[in-house]
Design a protein around this nucleic acid. Structure first.
Ligand code: SF4
Ligand code: SF4
Lengths: 159, 159
DNA sequence: TCAAACCTGGATATGTTTTGTCCAGTAAGG
DNA sequence: CCTTACTGGACAAAACATATCCAGGTTTGA
């Protein structure tokens, strides 16, 4: 059960975009974002497209174009980023094994209720999501050591 | 980020083993457990071995042998089962991308602290684990519709 | 005007993990 | 001593994550 590493990329990129916005350097081209952390450009672009489809970022085509946050960093949470990259599916997928084998003869209505396993898994994932939703991109930006933001802006604005 | 379906199998199997124990039918051979939910025997055996290595179950070789819970179902949590099947790794794996690209020149001590992303992810996974640890196999067994346990025991004890 | 710089989406390739099977070895019971 | 059972390792297929490429579009500024 490993999470896509695109989630880490996307989170860091969102922080960069927030800093760029603050410095008036938005939008930032994807090539520059990739260079900032030495990531494979073409693949990072895929993740950026996922962020765009989820409404977290918007992109400007053409020369002087690039990507920017679609709303203030304080209103983009880690949960949003994870959902955008990982997709909407829960980690735990029910396959209804309880209906097979010794229970194959039972009528379908015997299984109308999800069983305790599914319920507990669902609760646990909700707790996880709530925790992720408690941290925003602005929080992440604020918790980085002083001076790092200015350096990043300098790098993103460089020719 | 999909969870192994072996987790679902293992959870249900633990409930079965608990019922078997109550009925005095332990240990139960793996073939019987696989038949109970129509699972591929050889692959289920792999999951059972993982449960055994994690100390959740113990197995008895030889004729009249099989698998049984290694401790009372009330003291085996869903968290134990997930950890046994999924392994000890966190879902979110840090790859330290912040050290590359624009930060490649910085000394290593600048990155002694894990960044905010890693911290938030860690907190969220802890919340998930706490939630999973709140449900035991005995809880799951108790929440199944009446009569189901007796039917299961009948099936497991059958020739 | 038009070429350069930028994004989009789909096709494709490669590597890793999950899922599933098989077999040779070992242990216990009757 | 033969049947039933577990163990561990090797192996194959399928699914998924990672990565690259290309053939379109947009906008800007020379
Ligand atoms: S509901 Fe319970 S039984 Fe049905 S699939 Fe989910 S976990 Fe397995
Ligand atoms: S610590 Fe922060 S930067 Fe380093 S890898 Fe984990 S997330 Fe990425």
């Amino acid at each position: 059960m490993r999470m896509n590493e695109g989630v880490e990329w996307a989170a860091h990129v969102c922080v960069l975009l927030h800093w760029a916005e603050e410095g008036g350097d938005a939008p930032v081209p994807a090539t520059r974002l990739a260079a900032a952390y030495d990531l494979p450009t073409a693949y990072l672009v895929k993740q950026l497209q996922a962020l765009g489809r989820a409404g977290l970022t918007e992109s400007v085509p053409g020369r002087r174009g690039g990507v920017r946050l679609a709303r203030p960093a304080a209103r983009i949470t880690l949960m949003d980023v994870v959902a955008a990259i990982e997709g909407p599916d829960d980690a735990f997928a029910c396959t209804e094994i309880r209906r097979q084998g010794m229970n194959a003869e039972r009528p379908a209505r015997d299984f109308a209720q999800p069983c305790g396993v599914a319920h507990a898994m669902r609760e646990a994932e909700l707790a996880w999501r709530r925790a992720l939703a408690a941290t925003s991109i602005a929080d992440l930006a604020g918790s980085t050591p002083a001076g790092r933001a200015a350096d990043a802006r300098r790098f993103l604005a460089a020719p």
